[in-house]
């Protein structure tokens, strides 16, 4: 094949400039001018609406608008005022540019980004010359020590970040639950007896504290518990875990073993717990085993019992860390 056969079509070049109506028709130009002015005036009206709404529309007045429904008038008209005042300035400017400003397309030439060979050679020569004059090539000791110090200087800011937080220690493995700690309702802080929960009932509980009003979120984030009561014969647990329940009442950490959301969505009929964040589904009768979704571990179960006064209390601390996994977590 010769080159002429592969020759592409010819570039016809930039089409001739087509004049707009407003370019030669004075009436059309006047009309365009009027349109632009109207748009600008609409913007001014928007500003007036904004000022009016800010000062004179009380904050407790509501209006009904189709589609939107009943909504706060102050906020709505303030916003519409702002929207109009801004939008129509823009619309006016664009309409002005489109109809009345010169619309002849122009051509500008590009230049390759690459510098000319001369400039490049000159640059390299300058760098070499200046580098040599500074003795970069010869004074290796200076170079090495400079490299060392520059490398080390980066450590200081890193070290400065050390006090951002304490070391983890056993923070992730410990909760407030211990033998004998009362289970109290969240919110309400009332102690619970087993008979307070019927079959099919749940209760959201926290460990009892002397000053519940000072309960820290840090503690809630580990202590939150869900109590569920089912028929005892429905459990399919090993002997140890079964001994952690009390007459069909079972207690799970409410903090998801996946990413720490509150797993509190309990379906009484299927006896499934669902986490609304990522839809991990846990099966209560088998000890919150994962039956669907991304969670890899069952929810930790807390051993509970009834104390001498007949209240539900923890029988032991959690036997594993609650919440999401972390590197130091043991199986």
């Amino acid at each position: 094949m010769s080159n002429t056969e592969l020759e592409p079509l010819k570039d016809p070049g930039l089409p001739a400039h087509a004049h707009r109506k407003a370019d030669h028709d004075e009436v059309a130009a006047k009309r365009a001018e009027r349109q632009v002015s109207i748009l600008f005036l609409l913007s001014a009206a928007g500003t007036i609406l904004f000022i009016y709404s800010y000062i004179w529309i009380a904050q407790d007045i509501y209006v009904y608008l189709p589609v939107i429904g009943t909504t706060n008038a102050h906020q709505l008209f303030l916003g519409l005022g702002l929207a109009f005042s801004l939008f129509f300035i823009g619309a006016g400017a664009v309409h002005w540019a489109k109809t009345l400003m010169p619309d002849q397309e122009v051509i500008a030439q590009r230049h390759e980004m690459r510098s000319s060979d001369e400039d490049r050679a000159g640059f390299i020569a300058t760098v070499k010359e200046n580098g040599a004059s500074a003795g970069l090539g010869r004074r290796t000791l200076i170079k090495r020590t400079l490299g060392l110090s520059l490398g080390l200087v980066g450590l200081s800011p890193l070290l400065l970040l050390r006090d951002l937080g304490p070391l983890p220690s056993d923070d992730l493995t410990k909760t407030s639950w211990a033998e004998g700690v009362h289970l109290v309702t969240d919110p309400g802080n009332r102690r619970l007896r087993p008979e307070d929960l019927e079959i099919g009932a749940v209760a959201h509980v926290l460990p009892e504290m002397k000053h519940p009003e000072h309960r820290k979120l840090d503690d809630i984030a580990k202590d939150a518990l869900l109590l569920i009561r089912i028929r005892p014969e429905e459990f399919r647990l090993d002997a140890e875990k079964l001994s952690w329940t009390y007459q069909g009442i079972i207690a799970f950490s409410k903090i998801c073993s996946h990413m720490g959301c509150a797993v509190a969505l309990y379906e009484q009929q299927t006896k499934h717990l669902l986490c609304p964040c990522h839809q991990s589904t846990f099966d209560v009768p088998t000890g919150a085993k994962v039956i669907f979704g991304p969670a890899a571990r069952p929810l930790p179960q807390l051993a509970i019992k009834v104390n001498a006064e007949g209240f539900l209390v923890a029988a032991a601390p959690f036997n594993q860390p609650v919440g999401p996994s972390f590197w130091e977590r043991r199986k």
């Binding site: 916003g79 702002l82 929207a83 939008f87 300035i89 823009g90 619309a91």
Partner: peptide
């Protein structure tokens, strides 16, 4: 002009 248009549309959504 387009800056004002974008701002206007955003304000409209906010309203």
């Amino acid at each position: 002009g387009f800056f004002f248009i974008v701002f206007g549309v955003t304000a409209f959504l906010g309203a």
